[in-house]
């Protein structure tokens, strides 16, 4: 399973990557320090290289999570078929949750730190190919 983690915080990436690896050591995890870097890779990849799951932090320099979501909006349909996007943020701000209503292709929002239960739930959804909002 291919997974993208987009986060400007090294510590947070270290944590997320190891938490995911504990659950499934076979995962193909790629990390990006800004939305722009991730987009570059996404647009360059063929269908097969599109990740099944993408974790996106909101607060980043250059292109933050919102900017990334805006850039992905035109691709909404293709993404929804192929890729589940999860927002992974340390923010507890409820305005972020409200703002996410504008991006229906986002599968869910997870507050940092990511926990084993979150990962398990995501994987089980992923396996059953069904999608629903995870909270």
């Amino acid at each position: 399973m291919k997974i993208f983690i987009i986060d400007d915080d090294h510590l947070s990436i270290f944590l997320s990557r190891n938490m995911l690896a504990i659950e499934d050591a076979t995962l193909d995890i790629k990390t990006f320090l800004s939305g722009a870097e991730a987009l570059e890779v996404l647009f360059a990849s063929d269908e097969d290289n599109i990740p099944e799951v993408m974790f996106v932090d909101l607060n980043m320099p250059i292109m933050d999570g919102w900017g990334l979501l805006d850039a992905l909006s035109p691709l909404e349909y293709r993404l929804r078929e192929k890729c589940s996007i999860y927002i992974l943020t340390s923010s507890l701000d409820t305005s972020d949750t409200d703002r996410l209503q504008n991006y229906p292709f986002v599968s869910g929002l997870i507050h940092k730190p990511i926990k084993s239960e979150d990962i398990e739930l995501i994987f089980s959804f992923q396996r059953s190919q069904s999608k629903s909002l995870v909270l």
Partner: peptide, 21 residues
């Protein structure tokens, strides 16, 4: 508020996660 909710919480969240890890 943002600072508190995001930037202050970010290291806290990391710490919590790492402690768990």
């Amino acid at each position: 508020t943002y600072l508190v909710s995001h930037n202050l919480r970010a290291p806290v969240a990391n710490a919590m996660g790492l402690a768990n890890l």
